[in-house]
Design a protein around this nucleic acid. Structure first.
Lengths: 333, 333
DNA sequence: CTGAAAGCGCTTACAG
DNA sequence: CTGAAAGCGCTTACAG
């Protein structure tokens, strides 16, 4: 695959490469280059099917017009959707997006970051994993344009685009209480990431206020042993009889789906034996017998905000840390 | 974000940049560079947290170690999974992957291709859209390393990794016939892409052989008006009474999901009133009352094959067109 | 209105 | 065993 460069065009037209560059970048306006010359240059460029070499341009200009996106798992619909919107939106500003996965591993995260930085991305949108505080901190110190997504670190001065986890959680639990549930369980990740802690806090506060709190009803799930942990937790809850629990709040989409699957397998009748509320919508909800209430995150908006904030950082070359919190909606019909 | 280059290291160590480059690329073996010098270079590189600039390296070496992946829609689980595996696998060979979407639009495809080529990808893995024959043909003529995925053009000498669409379709329809279905409908995309034509042919042949063929039972769906088309087709089939149709083969995952949703809405009892078979697994199947038989595509293997074939093309700098057909499995319990 | 030249960060013959 | 130099394809002062 032979490539055509600015030099080829220059030779063909009989002009210097500088002139070609100027014309092709639209910098021939202010009476610089002769109209006819510009015209032929453009014509020849089209003829030869010239496509500028971004590697060279990036090297010269010190920016690659590329954004690195780091999510936990692209095969999770939540992140796949996010990636989709980020990419579509970033493209409008002339940025390409490199999408990468960490699988919730902090060592994978720092490896990916090296690759992305080596590829001279102009900025990063990151869904940080647990234990990645130091890794992210390093980026902050390096002043890499950066926005955290979905999760963040309270002690790190970053830009982050997140949702109102606490309120979202409150409304979910309140919905169960309104539905006459008394023994409500919380299944969430057992991590020290604030988005999950906030969800737990929302649950705990509402339960306390209603005089229903019981610490034993809070179940922590490990990402890397999700299935057994969830089954164990549910077995626990249903140990003696179903009256031990009459409501469950699944605080994340993966936990929701595995949890529901196991409940069905146990023969538990959803919304009859036990009412449930989930975080995030799943396509599967449309095919279930009973309606599943869920917390809807504004995925497209989150993606767009992240891109907007990142690009403004890149442009301004300064970083004003800010938390951008978007609102969720409890979908109950 | 100041970056550290080979030059910084060279100055610090008091040696030429050539030496640094040699050492950092592991080309100091054959008694070239002094052990102690190499040692300090490596030490300093680590200290300064040196990360090579891939733009510069790519420009110089004429390859970017990047693969462009073009799928129809990253938010479709089939492609998301594919992307996931392609990325994981390509990384093992030191390649990064740029994932992009066409939304089944041929004009979007050619725009994306320009961007990707401008970014000097070393090769492309493409899920071609309809009407993209000329676009792909251009790439072939340019001798861009390329492998088509999932779909292909019989008249274009390319490498493509696909499945046995005809056989897959046959087995699905045969399964319905074995289940005593007589009036079996086929819902597939109304496109001229061979993967879909093959699926239609598989259906038609089996039906003919069983003496059950009726052209009116074949329904074409347009990608850009999927929902209404599917509803229209199903309304048609169920116009007078349910006896008009007793089996449906949904020839693609999106059609399956929308089709099932509408059937449920119509109050049709799956596998009782009408038996169905789908192309591709959906997470939602796990939550449905009845088991849904489906054709399972070997997604990870397809992704790996595509990467293997592409990399071998890149390395050898020649293209031997080949069709790689992988086998599917009808999952019926 | 246009061209020659420097330089972005690398790698790789070539010379010593 | 090591360095000086060229060059990948661009952009951008600078000079004319």
């Amino acid at each position: 695959m032979e490539k055509v460069s600015i030099k080829n065009i220059a030779q063909r037209v009989g002009v210097s490469i500088a002139t070609v560059s100027l014309v092709l970048n639209g910098k021939d306006k202010k009476g610089r280059i002769g109209k006819d010359v510009a015209e032929t240059i453009r014509k020849v460029a089209k003829e030869l099917n010239y496509e500028p070499n971004h590697l060279a341009r990036g090297l010269r200009m010190g920016k690659s017009q590329t954004i690195g996106l780091v999510v936990a798992d692209i095969s999770n619909p939540f992140f796949a959707n996010m990636a989709f919107h980020i990419q579509e939106y970033a493209e409008q500003f002339g940025y390409s997006v490199m999408i990468t996965n960490t699988n919730e591993s902090d060592s994978k995260l720092s490896k990916i970051l090296d690759i992305l930085l080596g590829r001279q991305v102009d900025g990063l949108i990151i869904v940080p994993t647990e234990h990645s505080f130091e890794t992210i901190e390093k980026l902050v110190k390096k002043k890499v344009p950066l926005v955290l997504l979905d999760r963040w670190f309270p002690d790190l001065p970053t830009c982050h685009v997140v949702i109102d986890n606490y309120q979202a959680s409150r409304s979910a639990v309140q919905h169960l209480i309104d539905g006459k549930c008394k023994r409500i369980s919380f299944l969430g990740y057992h991590v020290h990431l604030p988005h999950m802690l906030e969800r737990a806090r929302g649950y705990a506060d509402v339960m306390q206020e209603a005089g229903l709190f019981d610490e034993k009803m809070m179940k922590g799930i490990n990402y890397h042993s999700m299935k057994p942990d969830i089954e164990h937790a549910l077995n626990d809850l249903f140990l003696h009889d179903k009256k031990q629990v009459d409501g469950i709040f699944f605080a994340n989409n993966s936990i929701s789906m595995l949890g529901i699957k196991y409940l069905l397998k146990m023969g538990v009748k959803l919304q009859e034996d036990v009412k449930i509320v989930c975080f995030d919508k799943s396509e599967a909800f449309d095919y279930m017998e009973h309606h599943i209430p869920y917390i809807l995150q504004p995925i497209p908006e989150m993606g767009k905000m992240a891109v907007d904030v990142l690009i403004s950082q890149i442009k301004q070359e300064i970083v004003t840390p800010s938390k951008i919190e978007l609102y969720t909606k409890l979908n109950i019909e």
